[in-house]
Computed example of a mutant assay.
Amino acid sequence: MTVIYSIGTVSQLSGVNIETIRYYEKADLLTATSRATNGYRQYDDASVERLAFIRRGRQLGFTIDEIRDLIALAHHPELPCADADRMTRAHLDGIEGKIRDLHRMRRALREVADCHGQTAEHCELLQALTGSVVRSKSERRV
């Protein structure tokens, strides 16, 4: 026997917001199994599992298109895992690049944090920002 859930119940079971569920339907990541006579969407256990899969993928930072590809791969368990591994490696490379960028930003902000200037004229952050603009303009002239 198939259990049928309302969108509110599916939201609670999967941990996915109702509006997000509707968005996933529009993005063709999820399909309501049917509609009740009152027009409300109806979902089953497979919908709950799909939403949990999508939520976990989004938590890991995968895009909607990447999740769509992963769902397609999950529906063909006989296929090799190489595509998922390639996608994971590419995603991991992107995350590591963002981490490097964040470390650079942190170092730059630490250099100007705790400014002792009394006015904006002596603000180290403003001077650093102005200096970077001046340098980039002079670098373009060279």
Rank of each mutant, 00 (worst) to 15 (best):
M1W: 04
T9I: 09
V10Y: 02
S11G: 06
Q12P: 00
S14C: 08
S14V: 06
V16A: 06
E19V: 01
T20I: 08
R22P: 07
Y23V: 03
D28I: 01
L29S: 04
T31G: 07
A32V: 07
S34T: 15
T37G: 13
G39Y: 11
Y40M: 06
Y40G: 04
Q42M: 14
Y43Q: 07
D45Y: 00
A46S: 12
A46C: 01
V48L: 06
V48P: 08
L51Y: 03
A52G: 12
F53M: 07
F53D: 04
I54W: 00
R55T: 03
R56K: 13
L60W: 02
G61S: 09
F62E: 03
T63R: 05
I64M: 11
I64Q: 04
I67D: 02
D69T: 12
A72H: 14
A74H: 15
E78K: 10
L79H: 13
A82N: 10
D83K: 10
T88F: 12
T88H: 03
L92C: 05
G94I: 03
G94R: 13
K98E: 15
I99T: 02
L102M: 14
M105Q: 07
A108Q: 06
L109M: 14
R110G: 01
E111L: 09
V112M: 05
A128I: 04
L129Y: 11
T130M: 05
V133K: 09
K137V: 14
E139H: 07
R141W: 01
V142E: 13
